[in-house]
Amino acid sequence: MKAEPFLQLDRVIHEKGRLGIMSALAAASEMPFTELRDLLQMTDGNLTSHMRTLQEAGYVAVSKSFQNNRPLTTLALTAAGEKAFRNYVALLAEIVEITREFGTMPTPVPAAK
């Protein structure tokens, strides 16, 4: 049984909060910080923390501007982020297939010692 899909899962995206951010940004080309916060029902601090992690991984681009004299922070997926998210979803789909095929999750076996 294959263990590879599990090992390839991107741990940066795999965290629940960051997965939510990546999913939302994958659907909307860009999203204001406040809208994303409300959609995911996160606190400002929590979202900022996840945003930084994703930014450091190069998955999310953050732009700051002013609208009607008020600061507007906007998030968008980078090309690398889009690719990583697509890969992550493909891996999940593969895992679901494996689960269906074998009835239960296969026991992962390390490939090499």
């Binding site: 939510g20 999913s23 895992i95 026991t107 992962p108």
Partner: peptide, 26 residues
């Protein structure tokens, strides 16, 4: 992964569902 699968056998499917829902809502 072993811990995750032991606790929640359908986690991958549920993750996909969460992604789908969030993408729709976004």
């Amino acid at each position: 992964q072993c811990k995750v699968t032991a606790v929640q056998p359908n986690w991958a499917e549920e993750n996909l569902q969460v992604i789908r829902t969030l993408m729709e809502r976004a």
